[in-house]
Nucleic acid binder design. Structure first.
Length: 212
DNA sequence: CGGAAGATCCACT
DNA sequence: GTGGATCTTCCGA
């Protein structure tokens, strides 16, 4: 049996809650836990504090825009609840949660998280020191993946299995009044879509990738 | 088969 | 605020 923290029992997320529109899922994922099982003794946990919705076929910023099918984007057309992980700028991995149940290519990018368990290992993975801030550790999609040792070898796995190397677990819901929305980051190429308010975060959280 | 671009991060000014 | 790193992915010829 894998060792589990007794003070913080983690319940896997219900896939049903991910088979909804990406805007809904992006907000619902705020406050939930992302769990990385490294081996039988080491578990890393981050609380998700910032997300972005990508609207699949109808979104110029999405890799699935106009139903584009390439070897890389196949994962986006899986059922909701799978991980879509890709390499960006030749350097950084980005983690998405595929959403919906109609193979639209919808997904939610996990942009930032707050270290909950295994902070020392995250700091080592990020080549930081003990004085590192939450924003330095996982305040950005590439940083978050590096902190949790997430790369493309985990692409396309389901995220509801607590025995898998990576899964989502239920957290404490975030009040609607604490959620802020704004334009997405790094998509200047996407024309009008660059202003769509599909970036969501916990208001004023110290681990956000950028202020609103 | 060449070339351009990229859902980022960091160091430097 | 600016530019470089770094390499996969994709498109067009």
């Amino acid at each position: 049996m894998p060792h589990k923290s007794t003070k913080n029992p983690l319940t896997p997320i219900k896939p049903r809650s991910l088979r909804l529109p990406p805007q809904n899922v992006a907000q619902a994922l705020l406050g939930t836990y992302l769990v990385r099982n490294l081996n039988s003794c080491n578990t890393l946990v981050i609380r998700i504090v910032e997300t972005e919705a990508y609207l699949g076929q109808t979104d110029p910023a999405s890799h699935a825009y106009q139903n584009k099918r390439t070897p890389r984007t196949q994962t986006l057309y899986l059922n909701g609840g799978h991980a879509y992980i890709y390499l960006i700028y030749g350097l950084h991995n980005c983690l998405n949660v595929v959403t919906g149940n109609n193979t639209n290519g919808d997904a939610v990018l996990i942009r930032a998280g707050e270290p909950i368990e295994g902070r020392d290992i995250m700091i080592a993975n990020r080549n930081l020191t003990r004085s590192a801030t939450p924003r330095q550790i996982a305040g950005g999609p590439g940083k978050l993946c590096q902190a949790l040792a997430i790369d493309r070898t985990l692409n396309a796995i389901p995220l509801d299995n607590p025995d898998a190397p990576l899964y989502l677990a239920q957290g404490t819901p975030v009040k609607k009044s604490q959620i802020i929305a704004g334009p997405r980051i790094g998509i200047d190429y996407a024309g009008e879509a660059k202003d769509w308010p599909l970036r969501y975060a916990i208001r004023n959280h110290p681990a956000l990738s950028k202020p609103f």
